[in-house]
């Protein structure tokens, strides 16, 4: 814990010393950006989450590990298609004994359309996009859960802000669930991220990448009354064709009656542009 405290303080000191900053897409909050037509971004993410006792189920603790094999394809100008196929491993502690489960999670298809773009300066930009798609849920066969959303992105100098809201209409869902959105209730997500370019302070003709600090607020509001807000600080390196990110997610407020509380979560991700 002392090490973690030192790292956190060091991070704060570094951030305060470097002055102002900017950036792009954080780990949990989308941005109104997309690859150009014909280009593909492969974005695998590895996440580990620990949940507490399920108030509505038998598990007393659940460790959840997921590899999300995400691909974003530039379809046309201002249009992209995202496909996410998570593979998950879930281990739950129950009074009757531990249970394990490995499976390919629900596949998600999402179209993003950027309907507004104002590139006001060499770096500065403001963009807005709508998203719509569906989650193909595998519960007693396939069910289709449509979702819509809106994403706003503003980059100015070294500072970047993304805001995202989405609504997931659940048509089936699981009765016993640990994670948000997996149950039978609809889910509203509200995410805000702040991205700050730590280094370089200014890009030069030889710049090939940049380091970014990220901070997110992730809100989850379900129609069954479960509500939760999480903080997610992280660090990201963005290169011209390869980027990687590391993120931590922690609960700050919740009112949960149907699913377990998140204790903590960590994630690492990679982005490869083809």
């Amino acid at each position: 814990m002392k090490t973690l405290l030192c790292l956190c303080i060091a991070g704060c000191v570094v951030v305060l010393c470097v002055g102002r900053a900017v950036g792009q897409e954080a780990m949990y909050t989308a941005a109104a950006t997309m690859p150009p037509p014909g280009s593909v971004v492969f974005r695998p993410q590895l996440m580990f989450s620990r949940y507490g006792a399920d108030p509505d189920g038998p598990s007393t603790r659940t460790d959840y590990t997921a590899v999300d094999l995400g691909v974003q394809i530039g379809l046309a100008r201002a249009w992209s298609l995202s496909v996410n196929a998570p593979v998950e491993y879930q281990q739950s502690q129950r009074p009757s004994g531990d249970t394990n489960r490995v499976e390919v999670e629900d596949v998600d298809l999402m179209l993003k359309y950027r309907f507004y773009m104002d590139n006001s300066g060499g770096i500065d930009t403001a963009r807005a996009a709508v998203t719509f798609g569906t989650r193909l849920e595998r519960v007693e066969g396939f069910s289709v859960d449509p979702h819509v959303g809106v994403v706003l992105t503003k980059v100015q100098g070294r500072n970047g802000i993304n805001a995202e809201a989405s609504y997931l209409l659940t048509t089936s869902g699981r009765e016993e669930t640990i994670r948000e959105g997996d149950g039978t209730a609809d889910l509203v997500r509200t995410n805000v991220s702040y991205v700050f370019r730590l280094w370089p302070a200014e890009f030069t003709s030889t710049s090939t990448g940049g380091w970014y600090a990220t901070a997110e607020l992730n809100g989850m509001w379900e129609t069954n009354g479960d509500r939760e807000v999480r903080w997610a600080p992280g660090l990201m390196y963005e290169g011209r064709e390869v980027s990687f990110e590391v993120m931590m997610q922690l609960p700050v407020w919740h009112e949960l009656g149907e699913r377990a509380e998140l204790d903590w979560s960590v994630g690492v991700g990679l982005r490869l542009l083809f």
């Binding site: 973690l4 405290l5 956190c8 991070g11 704060c12 951030v15 305060l16 470097v18 002055g19 102002r20 900053a21 100098g157 070294r158 500072n159 702040y194 700050f196 600090a213 901070a215 903080w231 997610a232 600080p233 931590m248 922690l250 609960p251 700050v252 903590w264």
Partner: peptide, 19 residues
């Protein structure tokens, strides 16, 4: 665990305002 990310985020915002 609740304070640390808030402090980091605050530091980020302060850093952003400094410039």
């Amino acid at each position: 665990m609740k304070f640390a990310p808030m402090a980091l985020t605050g530091a980020l915002l302060l850093g952003g305002c400094q410039g």
